[in-house]
Design a protein around this nucleic acid. Structure first.
Lengths: 141, 141
DNA sequence: GTTTATGCAAATTCTTTGCAATACT
DNA sequence: AGTATTGCAAAGAATTTGCATAAAC
């Protein structure tokens, strides 16, 4: 699905910044995109405030999901698979496993890895999870 | 082990801020401590710069480990179990599973939960991992 | 006595807010 | 036309750096 269709499907207006940012996510599908990277790429076209707002809008509409790796920076990745359907039900799940390479600093989705189910203590309920494995990726080792 | 012994064992000088901070970690063992909390607790005794530096020193010497939950803030927890021995080998592992409660904002160690082993693609090596389950804890539900 | 840690001030980085101008439907 | 989005400036958090003073070994 192209960026225009995706934006429409999620009820968002078609603006230049949104199309540019979403396009970038699609190019880098499977890899986390940081706000820093977006600022560098679009420094001449898009204001940083717009980037922040665009990412937050995309996150709310579940076009993208945030990943918390050890950089502490805002990083997001495109929702794929089940996320592709714009469902807001309880089972909508962004809980992929991600891998952060210490060397090249890239964070990517490990598509094959199912998110393990953790046995929580009594009375605890799980809504989502953030699982990042840190190490060295294939290219860097 | 008391805070004095622990500091000595890790080759750190015995200073008032370090003893206070380490003491706090020991009181709250099993729970993540944020820098914000430390600032509030020790606002009259310890400068915030000292808090940052103390935490970073503790992290380097592997007294504590950082947890990346969805707050984005610096949070740490005391290293326990295997971490208690001041080993710097490759198997030193801080990879506990943590649980962040959406309601009370507390992040704690799930002691019972072993960190699952993820099947990485060929050529990838894992050094550590950050796994935070997000939901509602027993007290809040 | 020498080395290391602390505290203060100030700088940097990251993120958010307010508001007028502009673009989308 | 009417509503939502953008860009700029400026404010607000969070974190780091420099340096003189003070504390630990």
């Amino acid at each position: 699905m192209n960026s225009t269709e995706l934006l429409k499907k999620h009820g968002l207006r078609l603006t230049k910044p949104r199309q540019a940012v979403l396009g970038r996510f699609q190019e880098k599908s499977g890899t986390a995109v940081s706000i820093k990277e977006l600022m560098a790429v679009f420094s001449n076209e898009i204001d940083k405030v717009t980037l922040y707002r665009t990412l937050h809008t995309f996150e709310e509409t579940q076009l993208i999901h945030r990943i918390y790796d050890d950089s502490g920076l805002e990083k997001y990745a495109l929702c794929v698979g089940t996320c592709d359907t714009h469902t807001h039900d309880a089972h909508h799940n962004h809980a992929h496993v991600h891998f952060k390479c210490e060397s090249c600093e890239q964070t990517e989705c490990i598509a094959d890895a199912e998110l393990p189910v953790i046995n929580l203590p009594n009375g605890y309920t799980s809504k989502s999870a953030n699982f990042v494995v840190i190490g060295v990726c294939g290219k860097c080792s």
